[in-house]
């Protein structure tokens, strides 16, 4: 069980939106996490010459720093339950990473930024990954019983 947290979740969501708006206003970029992080992976090609690596690496550093900052301010550990099934998590990582980049975006790029731009690609992608995520969870929890 996890508690239903409408207010803190909506506030956290609004911060995610604020970040997306700022990144477009300042750097002219879409806050798609799979796009930003996959662009940092090799082969780098022209991206280094274009000077578009540093802000991406800094953005990722900000993501890494966030939980540490929240823990420091709150003075208590962040609640987190991650499956300890290593095989399952390796498969989940491979599938998540491949699908997100192959499909041109994940929950942030398609789900938040694309939907906000009313992009038909992003709306269809979001409906598609939501549907397969619901089905996968149902099969894993209620049919397979993992």
């Amino acid at each position: 069980m996890t508690d239903f947290t409408p207010w803190t979740s909506a506030f956290g969501g609004a911060l995610i939106g604020l970040s997306a708006v700022l990144l477009l206003a300042l750097n002219g970029r879409i806050a798609g996490i799979s796009g930003i992080s996959s662009a940092v992976l090799p082969p780098w090609g022209e991206r280094i010459a274009n000077g578009d690596m540093a802000w991406r690496i800094a953005f990722i550093a900000g993501l890494f720093a966030a939980p540490l900052l929240v823990q420091m301010v709150n003075g208590e550990p962040i609640e987190q339950t991650v499956s300890g099934n290593i095989g399952l998590m390796v498969v989940a990582g491979l599938v998540t990473g491949f699908g997100a980049v192959y499909g041109g975006g994940c929950t942030s790029g398609h789900g938040v930024c694309g939907v906000s731009r009313l992009s038909m690609r992003s709306i269809l992608a979001t409906l598609t990954f939501m549907a397969t995520a619901f089905i996968t969870l149902f099969v894993m929890r209620h049919v397979v019983g993992v």
Binding site: A92, G93, L94, V95, T96, G97, F98, G99, A100, V101, Y102, G103, G104, C106, T107, H110, L124, A125, T126, T128, F129, M130, A131, T132, A133, I135, T136
Partner: peptide, 9 residues
């Protein structure tokens, strides 16, 4: 891609 991503998620 979206369908595969959803499975991983």
């Amino acid at each position: 891609g979206a369908a595969v991503f959803g499975v991983g998620w």
